[in-house]
Amino acid sequence: MNGFVKNIRRALGVTASDPERLEVVRKHLDDHARNLIPERALRSHPELVDNFIKMLESVEATVAHLSELADVASEVARYMIVNDLAHQLKCGADKLIGEIDWSEQSDLVIMSGPATGEDVLSLTHAFAGVSETGTLFVASGPENPVTLSFLPETNIVLIRVRDIVGSYEDAWLKLPWGTRGPQMPRTVNFISGPSRTADIEQTLITGAHGPCHLHVIVVG
């Protein structure tokens, strides 16, 4: 890094030890200051939830809002039947997903682990949802393999209503936090709708390389 940084310092006409510059940078990193947050991200929680759902639906995602975690299993089953999907599901060892009671869906095969090319349906858990753009924050980890969000043709994402916040800035606070910022997992995926492309004649087509369908279950 030395040669690189030296060149930059020469170009900027600065020295490494200028205390003022060091202080400016230290302060900027440590303050976690926010820039402008759009007004739409600062509204009441019910409004944020409404907008979250509206935004997701505007980008071709489907959304179900359930009051109880107990209803998730039947919603998943309903979705499979309506969309004529094989009754099997891949998910991670996520704690919230682990709390789902599948006992009434006896014909449902639930597998755990990362996705393979054969999986058609995955269930993941978003640690936060951002109202301003209808964006799910999904963090990778042993309990939420990243491939589940991308390989299967259909991805169902579970999010608790209390994890829906206004802004991206608020969503980062839902991760474990260290002195300099959140403790980053290998990947954090912002997901806003099913995959899409407009690379052919600017025609929007959903289902490019990632999931063709994104179903979001809001619980609570």
């Binding site: 935004m55 980008v59 301003e132 753009t133 964006t135 980053m184 990947t187 954090v188 995926n189 912002f190 997901i191 806003s192 709708g193 099913p194 995959s195 899409r196 990632g210």
Partner: peptide
Amino acid sequence: SITTYTTF
């Protein structure tokens, strides 16, 4: 308003 995926 945001792309479908933003990956960190």
